[in-house]
Design a protein around this nucleic acid. Structure first.
Length: 189
DNA sequence: CTTTGGATCGTCT
DNA sequence: GACGATCCAAAGG
């Protein structure tokens, strides 16, 4: 018999974003009836990380990154896309983990509908990007700041017993212009 | 298959 | 006033 699925606790998130990023691999993101297994993540820091939204200090947009770990940070970009992060670290120490890709588990029909894809579309197109997965799961600005521990609004991360990979792929982050020396992106093989 | 350019707007300088 | 932690359709090989 295997352990029953367990919601991640606050202490899981109150650590450095690199550690949390790696350990979020193979966890399950649940948003209402839709869920997917985390297969790609990136870590973002604060004043030490020029690629981070929080690099130049706190603003209205990035303020969630400065809050305590275990909150959801949703930002809007390119005039049309949302991306979702799990806030990490302590209050006042900005950092977060960007969820870049999921493997769809439940609610695939709803995801296709939300993405505007036909019922017979390939599963790999549903949540294979940070903005795609937000569209598929219905994540938008209204969910910014949601607490992932209380599970309000039915959104949280689940440990269903599948451990993070021992040797995840470790590469530079995508779509950034500075901070490329850091290998802060992790994905399944 | 890969490459290219358009869409579209909140945020910060 | 510029541009972004992006995506997709269309065109080209």
């Amino acid at each position: 018999m295997s352990a029953s699925p367990k919601k991640l606790k606050r202490s899981f998130y109150i650590r450095d974003p690199q550690t949390v990023a790696v350990e979020l691999l193979n966890k399950v993101l649940v948003v209402g009836g839709r869920s997917g297994r985390v297969v790609e993540v990136e870590a973002y820091g604060g004043a030490d990380d020029p690629a981070s939204h929080a690099f130049k200090g706190e603003t209205l947009r990035n303020s969630m990154m400065f809050r305590k770990g275990g909150l959801l940070y949703v930002y809007f970009t390119y005039g049309m896309h949302f991306c979702a992060n799990a806030v990490t670290g302590k209050e006042g120490e900005p950092s977060a983990v960007l969820i870049r890709a999921l493997e769809p588990l439940t609610g695939k029909s709803e995801m296709r509908l939300a993405r505007g894809l036909p019922e017979n579309s390939l599963e790999k197109h549903l949540t294979s990007g940070p903005a795609k997965l937000c569209q598929a799961l219905g994540i938008d600005r209204n969910l910014n700041g949601t607490d992932l521990i209380s599970g309000e609004k039915g959104i949280f991360f689940l440990d269903d017993g599948i451990n993070p990979p021992a040797n995840p792929l470790n590469t530079p982050r995508i779509g950034i212009r500075s901070g490329t020396e850091h290998l802060w992106r992790w994905s399944l093989h």
